[in-house]
Design a binder for these strands. Structure first.
Length: 565
RNA sequence: UGCCCCGUCGUCUAAUGGCAAGACAGCAGACUCUGGAUCUGCUUAUCGAGGUUCGAAUCCUUGCGGGGCAGCCA
């Protein structure tokens, strides 16, 4: 079996050993369709589907918690179904909706009224707030608390029929206005909302609150372990109270710490602000920590699942270093991504001793990590492009790349030497003149000659051009949700989170990239043909993540040292 | 301030009364036709104080710190 464990799985194992639920394991993932799913939901999906999968006969329901028509939309339902499918790897054969249980819930509310455990309260929202008490003071009982069962039944039926305006009355549980747990101070079960529901239409004008509805949904579905986040911990006594009062099947609620990620925000409210404030192009902007955003960026579901397993599950509030997520993608893509050569910021190089109109095709490994990936032929010629960064007229110490009079290897090709630097009138470097050593062709007689560096290149004559989008972290600060300069988290937004590059020079093979295909651009990073804007023949690439860049680190550190001195 | 929860390397997670371990990050080195990958090594932690015990990260008390709760949101 799986050695993977955490306190939730410990509880499930314990319940299994005591036969508490007749050997069943049944979890659920209960999103509210009021926004797109983000990576925090991936943690929950992974937990719930994971536990179900690990146990023979285990089940996990996808159930929409659609009890608030004011915030919920069909668009969100559709996106969530797609995202759950993508992350969990399961085709969801059955999608459940809390709103399908509205009749049953209403019946149970009537039962509670009959038992004298619920009452219709005529207080308005302000009055209810005023009589709830505070954190340190008990609340006051509602004057309507002791209405007769008959009167309550009558009012409840009329609430349901639509006789009363929004907010004029509520159905409340009769528990304890003096409870130190505020959730137990006669919580509201139904509120009047004359608003069409995305699935129920106008069938209802009273809607159940989360506290009233959630345990019932779990109970109806036979869920054994209802796993939710820490902020519901104080609600568990209420979850238990309703089920107990009704005398119906009673699942176990378990709370775990929600995911927080450094350099990003992970709340639907803030993500909505980013979308509505046009800080990003939409819910699926590749910089968004949404499932849709990561998918478009080029992350794999495997990488996200690996990440979810590495972060573990506990009750401790924490902020996971986003570097672990980035590591997870690299880990996956290193093994699976097809290699390619792409020059993002081109500098032309003329190989002066190469035949004028000559060209050849050089075999190159598709993936050094995977021999079965084979090789491909990359065209080479007298004029090539290299990365501007790979040449320095005055090389800093430890610079292993090209500089005047120095040699580098062109990956899968020849060793070249820089003979001359051509500049324009303004002194900008526009071209390099180099010579090559024909003996040093990869696999050739002098191929083993050692040079300090190897750089990537693209044949000028064969290169295709493409747009490449470099994405960086969306936020400047590790704790992105804390107020930044503007006093809100929006002040932390990284103005350079997107760099648009046009006219990048890519090896011709990339012309036929299908949308969604991932590549490693050697020495640069992992890239994905955009699923919306890219087409075979006119590719557009998104940077998924950079490669680990030791040189950049050395250089950065050098700069810092210099600045300090 | 009432109630609830949580305090272990920089960051996460483990150790379930018996040698504080792993991952990421960092640092140093080896290797390399990707300054990638890989490999090796190194640095760094039980919030404090009492108590129980042969023995405490773990149990108890208490202090401190962090988080949550006063929507007819979830």
């Amino acid at each position: 079996m799986n050695e993977k464990t955490d306190f939730v799985r410990d509880i499930v194992a314990e319940d299994l050993s005591t036969n508490r639920f007749q050997g069943r394991v049944h979890t659920r993932f209960p999103p509210e369709p009021n926004g797109y799913l983000h990576i925090g939901h991936a943690k929950s999906i992974n937990l719930n589907y994971g536990i179900a999968q690990e146990n023979p006969g285990g089940l996990c329901n996808l159930r929409f918690d659609d009890t608030n028509p004011e915030k919920e939309e069909q668009e969100y339902v559709d996106s969530i179904i797609e995202d759950v499918k993508w992350i969990s790897g399961h085709d969801q054969q059955k999608v459940l909706f809390a709103s399908d249980y509205f009749d049953q819930m209403y019946q149970w509310a009537v039962d509670l009224v009959k038992k004298g455990k619920a009452y219709v309260c005529d207080l308005n929202a302000d009055q209810i707030r005023e009589t709830r008490g505070t954190l340190t003071e008990p609340g006051k009982e509602s004057p309507y608390r002791n209405r007769s069962v008959e009167e309550n039944l009558d009012f409840l039926a009329r609430m349901r029929k639509g006789e009363f305006p929004d907010g004029s009355r509520t159905l409340r549980a009769k528990i304890d206005m003096a409870s130190p747990n505020i959730n137990l101070r006669d919580p509201i079960m139904y509120r009047i909302v004359h608003e069409p529901h995305h699935r129920q239409g106008d069938a209802w004008c009273i809607y159940p609150t989360y506290d009233w509805a959630h345990g019932l949904e779990d109970s109806i579905e036979g869920v054994t372990h209802s796993i939710c986040t820490l902020e519901f911990e104080n609600h568990r006594p209420l979850y238990d109270w309703f089920l107990e009062a009704l005398g119906i099947y009673h699942p176990q609620q378990i709370e775990f710490a929600r995911l927080n990620l450094s350099y990003t925000v992970l709340s639907k409210r803030r993500l909505l602000q980013l979308v509505q404030g046009k800080h990003v192009s939409g819910w699926d902007d590749p910089r968004m920590p949404t499932i849709a955003g990561y998918r478009r960026r080029g992350y794999t579901p495997e990488a996200i699942r690996t990440f979810c397993e590495k972060i573990g599950v506990s009750k401790k509030d924490s902020i996971i270093d986003v570097a672990l997520l980035e590591w997870s993608v690299r880990e996956d893509l290193n093994k699976h991504a097809q290699r390619a050569m792409a020059v993002l910021n081109p500098l032309k190089v003329v190989i002066t001793n190469y035949p004028e109109n000559g060209s050849e095709e050089l075999p190159s490994l598709n993936n050094p990590e995977d021999a079965s990936a084979g090789t491909r032929l990359v065209p080479f010629g007298r004029e090539i492009y290299i990365e501007q960064d790979d040449f320095r007229e005055v090389p800093p110490p430890k610079y292993h790349r090209l500089s005047p009079g120095k040699e580098v290897r062109l990956r899968a090709a020849y060793i070249i030497r820089c003979e001359e630097v051509i500049k324009d009138g303004a002194g900008n470097i526009v071209e390099l003149h180099c010579t090559y050593d024909p003996e040093t062709r990869s696999g050739g007689p002098a191929a083993n000659r050692k040079v300090k560096g190897t750089i990537h290149w693209v044949s000028a004559r064969h290169a295709i051009e493409a747009e490449v989008r470099l994405y960086d972290r969306l936020f400047l600060t590790a704790d992105a949700s804390e107020g930044g300069e503007a006093g809100s988290f929006l002040g932390n937004v990284n103005p350079d989170s997107l760099t648009l590059l046009k006219g990048c020079k890519l090896e011709p093979m990339l012309l036929s990239a299908m949308p969604g295909m991932r590549f490693q651009f050697e020495r640069v990073g992992y890239f994905c043909a955009d699923i919306k804007d890219s087409n075979p023949g006119a590719p557009v690439f998104n940077r998924i993540v950079t490669l680990k860049d030791t040189w950049a680190k050395i250089e950065l550190r050098g700069g810092e040292t210099a600045a300090r001195e």
